[in-house]
Amino acid sequence: MLDIRTYQPKQYSDLIERIWVLESGNEAIDVLIPPSQYMQLLVPLEGSEYNWNGRPNGKNVLEGISLQTNCVHYPAGTKLLGIRFYPFGAFPFLQCEGKDLLNQMMEVTLPGKLGLEAVNDEELLNEVYHMLHVLYDEFSYQRIKPLKDYYQTVRWSEDSMSIEEYCKLNDTNYTTLNRKFSIITGLSTKKFERLVKFRKSLCNLIDSKDKLTEIGADAGYFDQAHFIREFKLFLHCTPSTYQSLIQSADKDTQIINYNFRLF
C-alpha cells in the first residue's frame, strides 16, 4: 500500500494546492492517474526511481497538465516528494510554459540538495519553502494573475458562467486571456473549462452518492448526454462504467484511489 502524507501549504497557498510525500513500502505499486488540471513538481528522494508511462525516471521533473490517463509504477522502497501546483502556479517559480508540458514532463534544475539532509517531513517542508523562496519571481507572478482570477471563478463558483460572460463582467479581453492561458497552461480557456468540469464530475463520482444526473448537473453539464460525451472524451468510458470500476476496486487492485482527493 502507498503511504501518502499530504500537507496544506503554509506559503504560496494561491499557487500551490498541496505538498505531499509518497512512500511505497516493501511492495511495488502500480497506479492509474486520471486526466488532471494540476502541474506537479516531482522530486525523487533517497535515490528513488519510478516509471512514468513505461519510462524510468529518477530526476527532478515538472509534470504538465494532462488530458490522458497516466500509468505509474513505484518499485518497492520508492520515496517521492510532490508539489501540486494550480494550473498557473508553477510559472512564478520555474517559468516553464505549459504549451511545452501538456501531457509531458520536463527535467528541471533546482537549487540546493532538496531532501538529502531532512530526517523527517517537517525538515523536508522547511527545505521546500526555502527553495520556493529562492525560485520565486514577482514579475512572473504578475503575468499569471488574470489566469488565477479566472480559475477562482470557474473552479469555485456554484453558478455556471461562460468565458464570454466572465470577460464581459470583469472587463477582460477574451483574446488576451485565451492567449495567456495557451502559453502558461498549454490549453485554451475553453479546453481548460472542459477539463475542470470533467474533474468536478470525477471527484463527485468517487466521493458522492448522488445520482449520475445530479453529478453531471453539479459539474455544469447542461444534460446527461453532454455529461456522458465529455466524460468519454477524457476517460474513454461512460460515467456509469467508471463508477462501477470504483465501487468494485479494493485496496489490492491498486487501480484508482490515488490522487488523495481529486480537487
Rank of each mutant, 00 (worst) to 15 (best):
D3Y: 08
R5E: 13
T6V: 05
Y7P: 07
Q11Y: 10
D14T: 06
R18D: 07
I19H: 00
V21I: 05
E23S: 09
S24N: 07
N26C: 06
A28P: 05
L32Y: 05
L32N: 10
I33D: 02
I33E: 08
I33V: 11
M39N: 10
Q40R: 15
L42Q: 09
L45P: 04
S48W: 01
E49C: 12
E49W: 02
N53A: 12
G54A: 10
N57M: 10
K59E: 15
N60V: 13
L62R: 06
I65V: 15
S66W: 01
L67K: 08
N70Q: 12
I83A: 04
F85R: 02
Y86C: 05
P87W: 09
G89Y: 07
G89P: 05
F91E: 08
Q95K: 15
Q95R: 07
C96D: 06
G98W: 01
N103L: 13
Q104A: 14
Q104W: 02
E107V: 14
L110K: 02
P111T: 13
K113F: 04
L114Q: 01
G115W: 00
V119E: 08
V119P: 00
N120L: 08
L124Q: 03
L125W: 00
N126S: 09
H133Q: 06
D137Q: 14
E138S: 07
R143G: 03
L147I: 14
Q152A: 11
V154Q: 06
S157L: 12
D159T: 15
S160A: 13
S162R: 08
N170H: 13
D171R: 12
T172M: 15
N173C: 14
T176S: 13
F181Q: 05
I183L: 03
T185I: 09
K190L: 14
K191Q: 08
L195G: 00
K197I: 03
K197N: 08
K197H: 03
K200R: 12
S201W: 05
L202G: 00
C203W: 15
N204A: 09
S208H: 10
K209P: 04
D210N: 10
K211H: 12
T213V: 11
A219P: 00
Y221V: 11
A225G: 11
H226M: 14
R229P: 09
E230R: 08
E230P: 04
E230C: 13
F231S: 13
L235H: 04
T238C: 15
T238Y: 05
T241F: 15
Y242V: 01
Y242R: 04
Q243V: 08
Q243W: 07
I246T: 06
K251L: 13
T253Y: 09
T253S: 08
T253H: 04
Y258D: 00
L262D: 12
